[in-house]
Nucleic acid binder design. Structure first.
Lengths: 156, 156
DNA sequence: ATTAATGCAAACGGTTTGCACTACT
DNA sequence: AGTAGTGCAAACCGTTTGCATTAAT
C-alpha cells in the first residue's frame, strides 16, 4: 500500500481536518506539537491571545514551547484558519476561523465579551463603506463599552 | 506678594490650563517634565501610544525618561484628560481629551488613521445600545479595514 | 538523506518598578 | 524641611529570533 493512508489518529474536527494534507502538499510537516495546537484551537470559539494559547497547550503538554506555538500560528495564518490582530486588552489576539464575519462587544469594566451578529457587522461595514470608501474588516470589529450587567451594577 | 501668582510661563492652551492648579490643590507638583508632556499632549488630536509620547517628548527634551512620562500619564488619567486603552495595532494607547466623542478608521495595511464623525459614532452607539443593552464607549471606537488608497492600489 | 520543525536561550519593545537623589512647595 | 517627583537601572510580559539538534518525510 503506497497510497496516502490516514490513520484515525489524524481525525480532526471539521474545519481542521484538511490541515495535515495542506501541510504535506507543500513539503511542510505534521508534527505532534502542531496537532496539539490544532486541538486547542478547535476548542476555541472566536478569539484568543497568543499567551493564552501557549498556556492552554501547556495544560495538555507541559513541554510546550512558546516559540513553537507562535511559529505554528504563523503557518495557520497562511492557511487562513487564524488571523491575528489587535485585542481589546492590548495584546496580540488570534481570531479563529476568521472566514465567519463576526465582531465583539468588549466590556472595559469586567472584560466580558459578547458576540456581534452577522447582520450587525454588515450594518457597520456598510456605514463606513459608503461614507469613507473604507473597507471594514468584518472579522476585526471590536467595540468597547460597558456590558449590561456592569451597567445595572453601577446603577445599584 | 503672597497671593497665588501665575507667570506667563504657565499659560497653557485651554483644556490644559487648569492642570497646574488641579495638581497643587492636592499637594502634587508642577514640574518642567509635566509641563513638557502637557505641551506635547496639547498638540495631539485624538490618540497616541505611550511610546510615541516618550519619543515626542524626547524631541523637545532629549533627557526625557519613559518612567516619568508614564507616571505623569497616570496622573493625567485621574484628572480625566487622557484615557488609556487598546490600540488598533496592539499597543497601549492614550486618548487625549476623551470627553469628545470620536472614533477612528484604522487601515490594517498602511496604518493610516481616518477620523469618524460624531454622527457616525452615534449611529454605532445606538446600534448596539438598542440590541444588546451595551453602552458603547464613543471615544474608544476603532474600526479596522482597508483605506481608500490601499484599496485602489490593490486593484491597480 | 533531506531539510522542516523543535527547544533552548537570549533579545526584543513597550511598560512598570524599586530606590536613592533632586527639587517643588 | 518635608515629601512628591525624578532618573536610573533592572524587572517585567508577551513575542520573536538564532542556532544547534531532532525528527518527519
Amino acid at each position: 500500500m503506497t497510497s496516502t493512508q490516514r490513520t484515525h489518529a489524524d481525525q480532526l474536527a471539521e474545519p481542521w481536518s484538511g490541515v495535515p494534507e495542506w501541510l504535506r502538499v507543500r513539503g511542510l510537516r505534521w508534527t505532534p506539537q502542531r496537532r496539539l495546537l490544532i486541538e486547542v484551537l478547535s476548542g476555541i470559539d472566536g478569539h484568543v491571545t497568543g499567551a493564552d494559547l501557549v498556556e492552554r497547550c501547556r495544560m495538555l503538554d507541559p513541554e510546550t514551547t512558546p516559540s513553537t506555538v507562535y511559529r505554528t500560528l504563523d503557518v495557520l495564518e497562511e492557511i487562513g484558519l487564524v488571523q491575528h490582530g489587535h485585542g481589546a486588552d492590548g495584546r496580540e489576539e488570534y481570531h479563529v476561523l476568521p472566514a465567519v464575519e463576526h465582531g465583539h462587544l468588549y466590556c472595559g469594566n469586567c472584560g466580558a465579551v459578547e458576540e456581534i451578529s452577522e447582520g450587525e457587522v454588515a450594518a457597520v461595514v456598510e456605514l463606513f463603506d459608503s461614507r469613507h470608501a473604507f473597507a471594514v474588516d468584518g472579522s476585526h470589529i471590536t467595540i468597547v463599552g460597558r456590558c449590561g450587567s456592569c451597567l445595572s451594577a453601577s446603577r445599584a
